[in-house]
């Protein structure tokens, strides 16, 4: 008996093999891209952090790169990014989850026909357009109604980001709600629970890890968002004191300062990029854990 499971080779196959390796190399290009991005951002961003000192960089509260004795403290930006992200999640997640419940469990056909494309459109609208809307509608509203000097700042940023994370939350939550086995729902309904009770006591808990994943993805979107934020945040890297404080989160600082930064200032911006990247990596790790849990 000889083992013959090996697929035979022949001449015509060498052409096939060549094309197959083209496919393989294309797939590897993605790995290469990630590695390149990682290396280049860190190569450019880590040296200035080391030069400034990790402590003064991350915990410093003064960002004055254009002064004669420049200071490079990015704590105000980190705070602005984190508070903005949290605020957006706090407002956007409940709205997103309720909307997802609507789509997955309740909506009659005509409602789905309107709601679904609306969510898709919200997801597709460019961030500059969101920012522009914020600049022309939300900022003046805050200025007039809340008597804030400029209207720009944390609150405007949170409102815009909240709207922007809704599509992410809705899509992933809807999918995970739909993936809950029908038997669960039927079992609950058969016990005399109402449709709403079934949704909140059975379906939502069963879809828990998917919903958490949507929240983490939403966090990633919010902390990484640049153009919408840059137009409404005020672009002043001071520690936030209240919801009406003008701020400058990490992304906005990078994008704003890049246009006029001198060499070391620019390297310091890459340093901010490194910090942002680390946050994204941490979020991805959490996401991976959640997804693995969900698939189990």
């Amino acid at each position: 008996m000889k083992d013959v499971s090996v697929i035979s080779q022949r001449k015509g196959l060498s052409y096939e093999k060549a094309i197959e390796s083209v496919f393989f190399i294309s797939a590897l290009l993605m790995v290469l891209s990630v590695v390149l991005i990682f290396i280049y951002i860190f190569m450019e961003g880590v040296p200035p952090i080391l030069k400034i000192g990790l402590g003064p960089f991350i915990l410093g509260t003064q960002w004055t790169p254009t002064y004669t004795t420049p200071q490079y403290g990015i704590l105000p930006m980190i705070m602005a990014s984190l508070i903005g992200m949290m605020g957006a999640i706090l407002v956007g997640v409940p709205i997103g989850i309720f909307t997802a419940i609507m789509l997955a469990e309740i909506a009659p056909r005509p409602v789905t026909r309107i709601l679904k494309p609306a969510i898709e459109l919200l997801a597709g609208i460019p961030s500059v357009v969101y920012g522009f809307f914020g600049l022309t509608v939300i900022v003046p509203f805050i200025r007039v109604q809340l008597k804030s000097p400029t209207g720009t700042g944390l609150l405007a940023m949170i409102i815009i980001l909240a709207i922007m994370v809704i599509p992410t939350i809705v899509n992933i939550t809807e999918n995970s709600l739909r993936a809950v086995p029908k038997e669960y729902k039927e079992g609950s309904l058969a016990l005399g629970a109402s449709q709403i009770e079934t949704i909140f006591k059975v379906t939502l808990p069963a879809a828990k890890s998917g919903i958490l994943a949507s929240v983490v993805l939403g966090m990633g979107r919010a902390i990484g968002e640049t153009m919408a934020v840059i137009m409404v945040c005020g672009n002043i890297p001071k520690m936030p004191q209240s919801l009406l404080s003008t701020v400058s989160p990490m992304t906005a600082t990078i994008a704003k300062d890049m246009s006029y930064a001198g060499p070391f200032h620019r390297s310091a911006l890459f340093g901010i990029g490194v910090v942002l990247f680390v946050f994204i990596i941490l979020l991805n790790l959490v996401l991976n854990l959640l997804v693995r849990k969900a698939s189990r």
């Binding site: 891209s33 390149l36 990078i254 994008a255 994204i280 996401l287």
Partner: peptide
């Protein structure tokens, strides 16, 4: 790698 690329914010792409 695919997942990571999808999660990287656009400003990082800009820097890169």
């Amino acid at each position: 790698a695919t997942e990571s690329l999808a999660g990287i914010p656009s400003i990082i792409y800009g820097l890169f």
